[in-house]
């Protein structure tokens, strides 16, 4: 059992404050910050949330989320009017639904296969899936165009992000909050509790009559839907998608975001994504030159070092650091419960 995951509810007041701050952010920050940091952190957070949802509640660390969001993004970009790709010129809202359906169906189908494996084998099969999706879109140029699909048509609600990025930001924010609340609520339903049972004691759950494979498959399908949402939002954000947007590096980046934020709490997804976006953007200006080791061109070194520190010092990520700080600050009113150890995924 993993009490960090299953018993601790998020706090409504904190969520309200964060959302309120996010809502007034367009008044406080520049358009650039709104776009390149906040909007990016929000959609990247959704992608990481789909990974954290699987890892925390179903015990499945998946590298397939970028593959799924690539399918959703590519499907959307191909279905609407764009430069390159199939250019089916559907209505953007219809294409949006189509893309999410495709991503969810592929997710369920692939989840049905992958759910039979566990631990490192699950990690490998999902990694293979992401790589396969990347190569598929790299080589089937009819679907990805030479150098990807550009100038993708966006739904009216997003408006024209080049002139006014605020509607896109709010859309992403609303979707992110819905994903957060939705996944949180799902984890407390009978299905969510069953999933956590499957995570901790699959054999016992099977003995109790639960269909373990079906539980895992459905969990993967839900995560695929969320990853699909992130994929479509990433296309809104970039107004393009190229095979390079869904390559192995991106697969690893999403895992890094999830681990930095905290692999055991949904909030961690957005904390990690915000940290990642800030470092990614500002390390190119701030970082001093130290020989050939450190410098503005060393974003990957920085993020890698942070990753190592997090993994070694706080397996629960930045959220985990916060939790343990709070645990120290708080005066125990009763005898402290034994400190929960974050479960390692085997």
């Amino acid at each position: 059992m993993n009490p960090i995951v299953s018993t601790k509810r998020f706090s409504w007041p904190a969520l309200i404050v964060v959302v309120a701050l996010a809502a007034i952010a367009p008044l406080l920050v520049s358009d650039f910050f709104l776009n390149s940091i906040l909007t990016k952190a929000l959609w990247l957070g959704i992608a990481a949330a789909s990974l954290i949802f699987l890892a925390a509640y179903a015990g499945m660390v998946s590298l397939g989320q970028v593959g799924i969001y690539g399918i959703a993004g590519m499907a959307y970009a191909n279905l609407v009017l764009a430069d390159g790709g199939a250019g089916a010129a559907w209505n953007p809202y219809l294409a949006l639904i189509g893309a999410l359906v495709i991503a969810t169906v592929v997710g369920l189908g692939f989840g049905w296969i992958a759910a039979r494996s566990e631990g490192i084998y699950f990690l490998m099969i999902t990694l293979a899936f992401s790589v396969l999706v990347y190569y598929f879109f790299s080589q089937v140029t009819g679907l990805s165009g030479f150098g990807g699909i550009n100038s993708v048509d966006l739904p009216g609600v997003v408006g024209s992000p080049e002139t006014d990025p605020v509607p896109r930001y709010f859309l992403t924010l609303v979707v992110a909050v819905l994903v957060f609340l939705g996944l949180g609520a799902l984890s407390r339903t009978a299905f969510g509790l069953g999933m956590q049972g499957v995570r901790d004691e699959p054999a016992r759950m099977r003995a109790l009559g639960f269909d373990v494979t079906r539980h895992r498959t459905l969990a993967f399908g839900v995560a695929a839907f969320v990853a699909g949402v992130a994929g479509v939002l990433s296309v809104f954000y970039n107004t393009r998608i190229t095979p390079g947007s869904i390559n192995l590096a991106q697969t690893i980046d999403v895992l890094i975001v999830a681990v930095i934020g905290g692999l055991y709490r949904l909030e961690g997804a957005w904390v990690g994504a915000l940290t990642y976006a800030l470092i990614d953007n500002y390390s190119r200006e701030w970082v001093p030159e130290v020989g050939n080791v450190l410098g503005p061109a060393r974003f990957n070194t920085l993020i890698g070092v942070l990753f190592l520190i997090i993994v070694l010092a706080s397996p629960g990520g930045l959220i985990g650091i916060w939790d343990s700080l709070m645990a120290k600050v708080r005066t125990p009113r009763r005898a402290p419960a034994p400190k929960p150890v974050p479960q390692t995924i085997e």
Partner: peptide, 9 residues
Amino acid sequence: YGCADDTAD
């Protein structure tokens, strides 16, 4: 001196 990584994004 902008630094990209050969991906369009």
